[in-house]
Design a protein around this nucleic acid. Sequence first.
DNA 1: CCTACTCGTGATAACCATTCTCACTTTGGA
DNA 2: TCCAAAGTGAGAATGGTTATCACGAGTAGG
Lengths: 128, 128
Amino acid sequence: MTDRRRSVAAAADGFARAFTVDDLIAAARAHSPGIGIATVYRAVAAMEGAGALERVGSRDGSALYVRCSEDEHHHHLVCTACGAVAHTPCPLGTNMPDSAHEGFVVTSHQITLYGLCAACAGTGAVRG
Amino acid sequence: MTDRRRSVAAAADGFARAFTVDDLIAAARAHSPGIGIATVYRAVAAMEGAGALERVGSRDGSALYVRCSEDEHHHHLVCTACGAVAHTPCPLGTNMPDSAHEGFVVTSHQITLYGLCAACAGTGAVRG
DNA sequence: CCTACTCGTGATAACCATTCTCACTTTGGA
DNA sequence: TCCAAAGTGAGAATGGTTATCACGAGTAGG
Ligand SMILES: [Mn+2]
Ligand SMILES: [Mn+2]
Ligand SMILES: [Zn+2]
Ligand SMILES: [Zn+2]
């Protein structure tokens, strides 16, 4: 684990909402002023591979990510108005990975729920 | 509905597997030789908006689509080896759209299952 | 017939998020 | 300390997708 990687991870920890790589670059530069974008992209790829980061869609052509613990298998709920994120248990229940459906052996799945968080549900706010 | 749009829809119908826009362009040109890529991209956007096409990930930086009926709410199972697609009922069951989770009002969700189809599960095949 | 307006089309240029290149530095173990 | 492997960063390149724009087909009204 290098100094740069630590900065990116710390920057990711700082977000309570979904963020783009650009957001992450800006945040990482607070602690590592000279960090290059290639390095951040590489850190993102590594973290995504390790389950520390998860893609939850895109906004204006840029990927949106969510900081995620590497613990239990679970999924995410993203507020389409403010980007707020909630971690929610896997709704598949008994139909877990490696089970069979329609003749397929299911090895993985991608689930993201979208909606409005409590704060945004109150106002008529809409974003992106 | 124009002639071009019909060609793209017909081309999409011809795929039993997930396909890229490039695949679609090639297929559409079988019946509409001069069709331009912009037209196909526009048709894809229209079909996606209408629920006739659904994005199921990407391969090598290109979006992967699946032809889909506009009927019941359901999701897809994609073979990571050959791209074969199966349509499968929504696993959320009672937790349908517009319900609440973690304080969120859930308005939509994105679910895709990945695995190996019966044919590919037999061989040791792996792709992309 | 005209005119005006809308919409789809397609060749092409532009965009721009992401990846690659390459020379250099850092890391961590022996 | 030494070294091979991995990481870094400025900049160039990539390439899927989108924006432009001139054109033609349809349509409604007169
Ligand atoms: Mn999480
Ligand atoms: Mn379907
Ligand atoms: Zn799950
Ligand atoms: Zn569903």
